[in-house]
Design a protein around this nucleic acid. Structure first.
Length: 348
DNA sequence: AAAGCGGGGGC
DNA sequence: GCCCCAGCTTT
């Protein structure tokens, strides 16, 4: 038997039962694919169910506000996915009369849909012969064929995409694509791959050359930036002073609190004398409570976050600041680390 | 071509 | 602590 037959046979015997595999509806598949970008199935699954429940079709999605989408997305990360989905839903409603496109060339033009996602939606919804290349597929191909080209170089990406196209079973692209990814997820795992039960091990380069640990090759050294986020908790009777974040940083368009950022750890006394702080709150800041510093790790940043409760009211509000009742605070999309703080304070 | 963008889980 | 996860967009 050849690679394709072994692969698909294995898949049909061993696949997980995942909800987005029981449909050919392009909208539903789109929902699942965007949610699963850089996200584990177990983490994305509850979000998929919630989104499908709240927005059963692309028309209802297009009618939502960005605040609503971000709130539902809260905790999942990479929030531009949610913002781009709204743009795409509106586009589909207006340009395609709320019928979600099924072909690659139309899909690739939509916001938040790149090569992988376009190939996934096209093949799963209409069996179009486009090969998906995600993290799983990179791993399977690199190991099976012994390709040492870095998977994140420009030439590497081209080589792997071309190889995936060549390998694709044109008679049944949907199942083939699913099977490639499932093999990567269940058998050909990054660490401790289950080669002993792999259906294609006898022809696998990495298995026969004992090279699973060194494939695939990836050159990526992310440099991590350290940031110190000093948040100020300011209340006015039952209201809290909230900040809407801008476009150009993490957590774009989401909500947090008035913030003074420093590039190093400062003791509170020093912090409160910074011009930035005195400009906001005056020279005599009355502190009633300082939280311990919480460390929050992102892919490219290490955040050290604390909350300083003060009695002062700002002399003038920044444009992006506003007071909101605690009850309304619940409805705002808040980054995970901020949500933890707020939850403890207000029992959200 | 490189940088930026979350949060979680495995080891 | 490091790596990876059904990647894409912006610079």
């Amino acid at each position: 038997m050849n690679f394709n037959n072994e692969l698909v046979h294995w898949y049909q015997q061993n696949k997980r039962d995942l909800p987005w595999r029981n449909t050919t509806d392009a909208y539903t598949i789109w929902l699942s694919e965007i949610i699963l970008q850089q996200t584990r199935v177990e983490q994305g699954l509850p979000y998929f169910n919630r989104f499908l429940e709240n927005y059963p079709d692309v028309g209802s999605f297009a009618a939502a506000s960005e605040d609503e989408i971000l709130k539902l997305w809260q905790g999942l990360g990479y929030y531009s996915r949610g913002r781009n989905m709204l743009k795409t839903a509106i586009m589909v409603k207006e340009v395609y009369d709320s019928k979600f496109p099924q072909n690659y060339d139309q899909l690739i033009k939509l916001k938040g849909i790149g090569e992988y996602t376009a190939a996934a939606i096209a093949s799963f919804s209409s069996n179009e012969a486009k090969a998906v290349v995600d993290g799983n597929v990179y791993r399977v191909i690199a190991r099976y064929l012994g390709i040492a080209e870095p998977i994140n170089s420009t030439t590497g990406k081209k080589i792997f995409q071309q190889t995936a196209n060549d390998l694709l079973n044109k008679k049944n692209p949907a199942i083939h694509n699913q099977a490639m990814m499932e093999l990567g997820a269940i058998i050909c795992k990054p660490k401790n791959p289950a080669c002993g039960i792999c259906p294609v091990r006898t022809d696998c380069y990495a298995f026969t050359h004992n090279a699973t640990n060194s494939l695939p090759v990836k050159l990526n050294k992310v440099k991590v930036r350290e940031r110190y986020l000093n948040y100020f908790l300011i209340t006015d009777s039952d209201k809290v002073l909230v900040n809407k974040r801008n476009q150009s940083d993490i957590w774009a368009n989401m909500y947090d609190l008035p913030l003074v950022e420093t590039t190093s750890l400062m003791d509170p006394g020093e912090l409160l004398r910074l011009p930035m702080v005195t400009d906001f709150f005056g020279n005599n800041v009355e502190v009633t409570e300082i939280s311990p510093i919480k460390k929050h790790v992102l892919t490219h940043q290490r955040l050290y976050v604390r909350l300083i409760k003060i009695q002062n009211m700002p002399s003038k509000l920044q444009e992006q600041w506003f007071y909101t009742p605690v009850e309304e605070l619940k409805k705002l999309a808040v980054p995970k680390i901020i949500f933890i703080f707020l939850k403890n304070i207000f029992n959200l």
